[in-house]
């Protein structure tokens, strides 16, 4: 299965969610600033990178995890993605599109704008880190819900592989 976490810029909330999914961040405590800054793509993409679907890694069940920044076009993106799957005869069960924007708070918006749009990273990044930590448990909860939702599919695949 392919799972795409998408948000406005593909730099903070979606990267955090994807990293949680891949087990790169703790779920029993808040991550440190260093742990967040070490994540691939965290607070790095800029405007011209929006629209690129970036591969993050494979989870323990071989699901491919991606992140995408699609500005404010979440509905258009989801309509387009599900529609294109249908047009090309691909099963929509093999793809999950997870919108992380509902968990983005004002600190992430202000920090993200300062760091990625205005390129004042020394000011923007600490604000973003505070925002990510503020939303962290909500993002953990979202990722756990996603994992539960796809679990039935995973167990079927795991059984098939063992056989």
């Amino acid at each position: 299965m392919n799972i795409i976490y998408h948000c406005y810029g593909g730099a903070h909330s979606s990267v955090t969610a994807a990293s949680l999914h891949l087990g790169w961040l703790p779920t029993d405590r808040l991550p440190t600033d260093q742990e967040l800054k070490a994540l691939p793509y965290f607070d790095r993409p800029i405007g011209k990178d929006h629209g690129n679907i970036r591969f993050m890694g494979k989870d323990e069940f071989n699901n491919e995890i991606y992140v995408l920044g699609r500005r404010n076009e979440s509905k258009v993106f989801e309509n387009m993605a599900t529609g294109l799957l249908e047009v090309f005869g691909v099963s929509s069960n093999d793809y999950q599109f997870i919108n992380v924007m509902p968990y983005v708070n004002w600190k992430m918006v202000v920090g993200g704008f300062s760091s990625r749009k205005l390129l004042i990273t020394p000011i923007g990044r600490p604000i973003i880190l505070a925002g990510v930590k503020y939303a962290y448990w909500q993002i953990v909860s979202l990722v756990q819900s996603v994992k539960i939702c796809i679990a039935s599919n995973n167990s079927i695949r795991a059984t098939t592989v063992e056989e």
Partner: peptide
């Protein structure tokens, strides 16, 4: 966001 969304279409099809 026409240029960005054109890229998204291409990316989805590639995926």
């Amino acid at each position: 966001n026409s240029f960005m969304m054109e890229r998204v279409v291409n990316e989805i099809i590639k995926l």
